[in-house]
């Protein structure tokens, strides 16, 4: 690995570690309101200052990283599981089932994804508890993004179904479901892993987009998207550059992520 790759990896690790050590690095809770010092500038007690409700920005950034960094892989796993389920069923069963699944996938792929995400989220109840909003975002991201992966996995499964080793497994008396689970699935693992790693940065960005529009994780729980919503007014940034911290963190994280994982693919 190159020096640049290594440093990107170290940086990624540091961001994840900092989010895990949030309680230690920022003793204040993400929701404690220090009423006597709202909109404080960075100081010893609040290294990134406070927001308009007097909440410690550093605590909110670290806890928010925790939420975003947990949500994206979880939604990616759900998305890959759905893609695999639909793709393998279609590829292995063939016939009308395959045509129906792929027609649905084509439809999903041709819809503008962000628009679809926003529309569906807006149709669901918005006034929910923070944890319910995490669950909704997780299910939404996972459920709306199965189509591209399902197409890739379907073609993989269809090719494997006609492979010599699948024929031999049949010739040695292996029943259909076992053939699928024990012989075909292990060969699809690299495809599924690739789908998983591609989905993570996509979902981090999608959560940020939803959050900026107020459709993401509900207050008072912080997330990168929710924190970015604060800098929608450019006028405020000039007076208080620390507001850019979540944007910088997000950008650094995603660039390091792409650097480390897309290099690893080759």
């Amino acid at each position: 690995m190159t020096t640049a790759g290594k440093s990107a990896g170290v940086l990624l690790f540091a961001i994840v570690a900092a989010s895990l050590a949030a309680g230690y690095l920022a003793p204040a809770s993400y929701e404690t309101q220090f009423r006597e010092s709202p909109n404080a500038s960075p100081c010893r007690q609040f290294p990134l200052g406070t927001d308009e409700l007097g909440r410690d920005r550093l605590a909110r950034l670290l806890y928010g990283s925790r939420v975003s960094l947990l949500l994206a892989p979880a939604a990616a796993a759900l998305s890959v599981a759905l893609s695999a389920l639909i793709g393998i069923t279609a590829g292995y069963a063939g016939g009308w089932l395959e045509r129906a699944a792929m027609a649905a996938a084509d439809l999903f792929v041709s819809l503008p994804w962000l628009f679809l995400l926003l529309t569906v989220r807006a149709l669901l109840p918005l006034n929910v508890t923070p944890w319910a909003s995490i669950l909704i975002t997780f299910l939404l991201l996972g459920a709306l993004s199965w189509a591209p992966g399902a197409r890739v996995i379907r073609s993989g499964a269809a090719a494997l179904k006609h492979s010599e080793f699948a024929l031999l497994a049949r010739a040695s008396g292996c029943p259909g479901p076992r053939l699928l689970w024990k012989h075909i699935l292990p060969n699809l693992r690299p495809l599924m892993a690739a789908q998983f790693w591609i989905a993570i940065p996509m979902f981090i960005l999608s959560e940020a987009n939803l959050g900026m529009l107020g459709l993401g994780i509900a207050e008072p729980l912080p997330s990168w998207g929710g924190l970015l919503a604060e800098i929608q007014d450019p006028g405020r940034i000039a007076g208080n550059p620390v507001l850019l911290a979540p944007a910088i963190l997000l950008t650094v994280f995603l660039s390091c992520f792409q650097f480390v994982f897309s290099k690893g693919d080759r």
């Binding site: 492979s163 080793f165 031999l168 010739a171 040695s172 008396g173 292996c174 024990k182 060969n187």
Partner: peptide, 23 residues
């Protein structure tokens, strides 16, 4: 299914493509 592999078995043609590369 009960006959294949127990009563009648197959040795296929190309050894490397008949073995599952992932197992």
């Amino acid at each position: 299914r009960g006959i294949r592999g127990r009563e009648i078995s197959l040795v296929p043609q190309s050894p490397h493509s008949a073995l599952n590369p992932a197992l």
